[in-house]
Amino acid sequence: MIYRIDVRVIAPVRDTEVTDRVADAVRNLFPNAELREEPGRLVAEAHSMDAFAERLHEQEILDTARKEFFGRADEDGFAFALKKQAAFEGVINFAVGNPDELGDIEVQVTVHEPDVEGFVDHVAPPTEDGKPIRPDDEG
């Protein structure tokens, strides 16, 4: 299966923060992303979520990820928000409710191939008793 995606990551940089630390937070979860600095934020572009998917499997939060992805999905892709402090530690923690005072990391995924549901199934496969249903999807 060929996956063709564009991932755009936007991380606010507050006056009290060190830009390099925010960049590290983004790179911890999206190591192949190309980062650029814009006023008040970092913007990163990537074409893979492999490292992110591995972390979802390691943390055993596939069901949570699916809920977040499908919660903000349309025919072109999906979006989700992550807690910046957790990302500093290399941990995926989805941001729900009120944004953190440092701002949340916003991730927008545009899926060109195959389709949104197929790609979500690849990144965060459906589970049964917390384990991926298809054995070939186990990380």
Rank of each mutant, 00 (worst) to 15 (best):
I2E: 08
I5G: 01
D6M: 05
A11P: 11
V13G: 02
R14N: 08
R14Q: 13
D15Y: 00
T16A: 07
T19D: 02
T19L: 08
D20Q: 13
D24E: 14
P31S: 07
E38G: 04
P39H: 06
G40L: 04
G40W: 03
L42A: 02
L42G: 06
H47I: 03
A53C: 03
E54T: 03
E58W: 05
E58C: 00
Q59K: 08
L62G: 02
T64E: 15
R66H: 05
R66V: 02
K67C: 01
E68A: 14
F69W: 07
A73L: 01
A73E: 09
G77P: 06
L82R: 14
L82I: 14
A86V: 02
A87Q: 09
A87Y: 07
N93D: 14
A95C: 12
P99M: 07
E101L: 07
G103F: 05
D104L: 04
Q108F: 14
Q108V: 12
Q108E: 12
H112L: 12
E113H: 14
P114H: 04
D115N: 15
D115C: 03
V116Y: 07
G118T: 02
V120A: 05
A124V: 07
P126R: 15
D129N: 15
D129V: 04
P132S: 10
P132R: 09
R134F: 15
D137E: 12
E138T: 13
E138I: 14
G139N: 15
